[in-house]
Design a binder for these strands. Structure first.
Length: 427
RNA sequence: GGGGAGGUUCCCGAGCGGUCAAAGGGAACAGACUGUAAAUCUGUCGGCGACGCCUUCGGAGGUUCGAAUCCUCCCCUCCCCA
């Protein structure tokens, strides 16, 4: 790696604010730095919104720095008011431990945890046994309520109500940084830009407690070109857990990104060289789709592995038509090039038996039973509006029944709207 | 603790005794147009064996032929005062 990490990060769009850019740059350039990012274990899986900090950490690690991931086991029990207009629900200890385990597994795809190259710690370890009096005396005295109240996050919450509990969040996060500084010589905290105030609080605290040279770095808060939060889909969040979001759906999310987001996302969510990505600036028409295929493939590869990524890609081709990725388009990508024929094995579906088809089930019932529509009423509407296809043929009769003759090559292909495919397979 | 304002369908937000499954907007979904993009236009948007029936308007009771709308108690949120 001849490039400087900071340049790499900024070229890829990972830099929003840095507390002291020059000294930090110098530090990162001359030695391996231990840094940390906090993740709240509020669910048992990461989702696309977490991806940006995770990618940021991964880049740092590639450049020889050591990430500490704090799962905020202690702080999650309080809830961070930053950027929220409502109090967050609290979790029990057991849920948090369970969630953390799964999150670590997922992080393992992006970070190398072997031989202590990355560490994951739970701040409950020190927050859980905090002594209130000691904490107030040693830590609390360094915080000015007047100052805290001027922060935008608290100001906003002042309008709707802010509990004392939440008001303490910042102190605890600052304390985390302090503990990591003492324990692991952690010199840098990274996080989303909504964490800026909390990060500053941490580095201020360390300085006041006699520490030196600690820094903060924030990542931009991403929204898509249409203003939506990153990774939000009709079905909710875009999860990394294949049980919650199938690799196929995950892949589809990336293929369906807005044109305007393509290049930006490729820089942020893949490790492909920036120089190659830059060449994609002037795509036109259908070329966008080829580039999006690469984005989707690479993003899926990262979170689900290359095999799953290929499967998702083949499934998409089976449904939407094959594509040939030109050899000179982002050559570093390991996406299969040349003629590719689709293979449906990655398309969502269910296997059915003979009894099922012999009973000549109503199409609407099948849709509802497989969770493709929320209710039969919705199914009916969809059919009436011409949004349901069986083997690529539009069905507009709400009484339509699936029969043996609809089974082609051992399957019936259902399609809702333009993009949602579901195969019923028969053995 | 005292006073005030509120809690409506995914979200915002009307409704204030029947004509209310509940205006309007947003989100979402489908259709047309396209490039599995965006924008635009059109339609849909509680459930069901569907010109009818059932379940919704913070919760529980009550008044009434009839309640989201009135009364009682309770829960929760916000604002002002302490």
């Amino acid at each position: 790696m001849d490039k400087h990490v900071v340049d790499e990060l900024s070229a890829r769009g990972f830099v929003q604010q840095i507390t002291e850019p020059e000294p930090l740059r110098e530090l990162l350039g001359k030695e391996s730095v231990t840094f940390y990012v906090g993740i709240d274990p509020t669910a048992d899986s990461l989702h696309a919104g977490h991806l940006l900090p995770v990618m940021g950490m991964a880049i740092m690690q590639k450049y020889g720095h050591r990430p500490i991931v704090i799962v905020g086991g202690g702080t999650a029990m309080i809830g961070d008011p930053s950027g929220k207009t409502e109090m967050r629900k609290m979790l029990t200890r057991e849920q948090i431990v369970e969630n953390s385990k799964k999150i670590k597994q997922q992080l393992g795809r992006y970070l190398d945890f072997s031989e202590g190259k990355a560490i994951m710690v739970d701040n409950y370890e020190w927050l859980g046994s905090l002594n209130y009096i000691d904490f107030l005396r040693d830590i609390g005295r360094h915080f000015s309520v007047n100052k805290m109240l001027t922060y935008e996050t608290y100001k906003r919450r002042m309008e709707t109500g802010l509990s004392f509990l939440e008001f303490n969040y910042q102190l605890l996060q600052a304390y985390d940084f302090y503990v990591l500084y003492k324990k692991y010589n952690c010199r840098l905290q990274m996080g989303g830009d909504d964490q800026w105030a909390n990060i500053l609080a941490g580095s201020d605290l360390i300085r006041r407690m006699g520490g030196k040279d600690v820094y903060g770095h924030t990542f931009p808060l991403l929204t898509t070109a249409t203003g939506a939060k990153m990774g939000k889909t009709e079905a909710g969040a875009l999860w990394l857990d294949p049980e919650k979001t199938s690799p196929y759906d995950y892949y589809q999310y990336w293929v369906n990104v807005d044109d305007r987001d393509l290049v930006r996302f490729m820089r942020l969510y893949t490790f492909l060289p920036v120089e190659e990505i830059e060449k994609l600036e002037n795509l036109k028409d259908a070329e966008y789709n080829l580039a999006k295929t690469i984005l989707a493939f690479e993003a899926t590869k990262l979170s689900h592995g290359e095999e799953e990524a290929k499967k998702a890609m083949m499934a998409a081709m089976a449904a939407f038509g094959s594509r040939e990725i030109p050899a000179d388009m982002v050559p570093s990508s390991t996406i299969p090039r040349g003629e590719q024929s689709g293979n449906e094995s990655g398309v969502p579906g269910a296997s059915m038996d003979d009894a099922f088809i012999n009973s000549a089930p109503l199409l609407i019932d099948v849709l509802a039973d497989n969770g493709l529509v929320k209710s039969k009423g919705e199914g009916r509407r969809l059919v009436q509006q011409g949004g349901v296809y069986v083997n690529d043929e539009r069905i507009q009769d709400i009484e339509f029944k699936l029969e043996r003759k609809d089974v082609k090559d051992g399957k019936i292909e259902l399609r809702l709207g333009k993009k949602r495919y579901f195969n019923l397979t028969f053995s």
